[in-house]
Design a protein around this nucleic acid. Structure first.
Length: 487
DNA sequence: ATGTAC
């Protein structure tokens, strides 16, 4: 929905440019703003944000109790539930609020990049078969559940322990994988008791499933390297075959979000508190609701990392079956990073709860949380483009700390709603067009395909260049699709 | 994103 012309004319003069790709909205725009709103964008992307409610949603975020500094939108920002997708906000611990809408329904939706030692050129003929095998091995699509049902005990351990349990307890993956996953694939704040029975039921057969919507697995070719030093540190080279996995915590995370939004909504009503937008339901981090949600969110995040780990194992099985057990055909984890999560981090000596919704953590070089090999170059940031377009590998820069609470964008960003895309795009035609580009498509539904059409998304090259210009992350490599597997 | 509006 578009904001009214009246609102936009009032907003415009209070918006000033702070840098080559950074804007600030003065808090005088609305009396309830506690801090300014900032936006990483160029002129074109900024204009696009005027076409939906995302800017006003970002303004709403600045009203949250305990918010520090500013609320900031990434260049791929668009309208979401409560918070805009592409929004970042840090609240002061212990009594600032945590808001499930600031993390998103798909808790720890994120991206994992796998690299092979193969040149695409050398395995060209095998790509369609590999894609087909992946489609047979990995359940995809909305409502699709896996054939593998975890016992209640296994699920509890996934929620409590995350990827270390998947590797060492379930035997799926290698010990080296753990060093290349944000937080080692395990948040210690998880408390299984805060995850409802219903959420657990929904998750019990969804480990190792891809889901629908914009979730996908893509086989890609490294088309171009921008930063040779960083590419070398990440093990990337031109012509290389890579695999990108984009998925999250499935129905389990969705149910956790639903449960705790309701819980917080009730608590607010009990105390007679009204928010500017009910979808911003939140609670002080230190409150029972804040602690409960945070513990459940950590558990759902562990589930999502575990999910991407199981999918990695499936990819390895398929590659090894098809290409033989040679070391160059064994996909390594380059990195795995969330873009829907809240993390506890320190800025200017203050402990904050940093909400990232459709925003990727982008720690610069030398950050202690990075694996040793990436210390000199910074944290890998993956920007999946829309289907059939390029994806990018970037690395976080130290400047991101002051500019954006160490955050960058997470994708191209929608410019058409799912409904609008479905109306405008014929899935069957799109399928043909992708095939004509030489991209193998493994997706049962034309409707799902249409919703994710490239025209439904902003220009990923522009989004990525804006992030680069803003100085929060730098371009390392451009990856182009060879085969896409989606729901 | 999501057993696609309890």
């Amino acid at each position: 929905m578009e904001p009214t012309a009246e609102v936009l004319t009032r907003l415009e003069p209070l918006l000033r440019q702070l840098g080559p790709a950074l804007y600030e909205l003065d808090p005088r725009f609305r009396s309830d703003m506690r801090v300014p709103a900032r936006i990483v964008a160029d002129e074109v992307l900024l204009r696009q944000m005027f076409r939906d409610r995302s800017l006003l949603q970002l303004v709403n975020v600045t009203t949250l109790p305990g918010i520090q500094g500013f609320a900031i939108g990434m260049p791929d920002m668009h309208e979401g539930y409560g918070f805009p997708v592409g929004g970042v906000a840090g609240t002061l611990l212990p009594d600032g609020v945590i808001s499930p809408g600031g993390i998103g329904f798909d808790i720890n939706c994120g991206v994992r990049l796998l690299s092979t030692g193969l040149l695409h050129e050398d395995v060209k003929e095998a790509v369609p078969a590999l894609a087909h095998d992946l489609a047979r091995s990995i359940p995809t699509g909305f409502g699709r559940h896996g054939r593998w049902v975890l016992s209640p005990e296994q699920l509890e351990r996934v929620l409590a322990e995350g990827v270390p349990y998947v590797v060492h307890g379930l035997g799926l993956g290698a010990g080296e994988d753990l060093s290349y996953i944000e937080a080692g694939g395990h948040l210690a704040g998880a408390d299984v008791a805060q995850v409802s029975v219903r959420a657990r039921e929904r998750g019990s057969d969804q480990l190792g499933t891809l889901g629908g919507g914009n979730h996908f697995i893509e086989m890609q070719r490294v088309e171009r390297i921008y930063d040779a030093g960083a590419a070398e540190a990440l093990g990337l080279f031109e012509g290389q075959l890579t695999i990108l996995i984009h998925t999250g915590s499935r129905g389990l995370g969705h149910q956790v979000c639903t449960d705790w939004v309701r819980e917080m909504d009730r608590a607010l009503a009990r105390e007679g508190l009204r928010l500017v937008d009910r979808q911003l339901a939140c609670a002080p981090f230190s409150s029972a609701e804040g602690q409960g949600y945070y513990a459940a969110m950590c558990a759902a995040a562990n589930f999502a990392w575990a999910n991407r780990q199981v999918l990695t194992h499936r990819v390895r099985e398929v590659f090894s079956r098809r290409l033989g057990p040679r070391p160059e055909a064994w996909p390594h984890v380059v990195y795995d990073v969330a873009h829907n999560i809240a993390k506890l981090e320190t800025y200017g000596g203050r402990r904050l709860c940093v909400h990232r919704k459709g925003a990727t953590r982008a720690f610069g070089p030398g950050h202690p949380e990075l694996p040793e090999a990436y210390q000199p170059v910074g944290q890998p940031v993956f920007i999946p483009g829309s289907m059939g377009t390029a994806s990018f590998v970037m690395v976080g820069r130290s400047e991101s700390q002051a500019v954006s609470f160490s955050s960058a964008c997470h994708g191209a960003g929608r410019q058409l709603s799912r409904a609008a895309a479905k109306q405008q795009v014929a899935g069957a035609e799109l399928r043909k067009a992708l095939s004509a580009q030489g991209i193998s498509v493994e997706c049962p539904s034309n409707a799902e395909l249409a919703e994710e059409a490239p025209t439904a998304y902003k220009d990923v090259d522009r989004v990525v260049d804006t992030v680069d210009t803003a100085g929060i992350a730098g371009k390392v490599a451009r990856l182009v699709p060879l085969a896409v597997l989606k729901g």
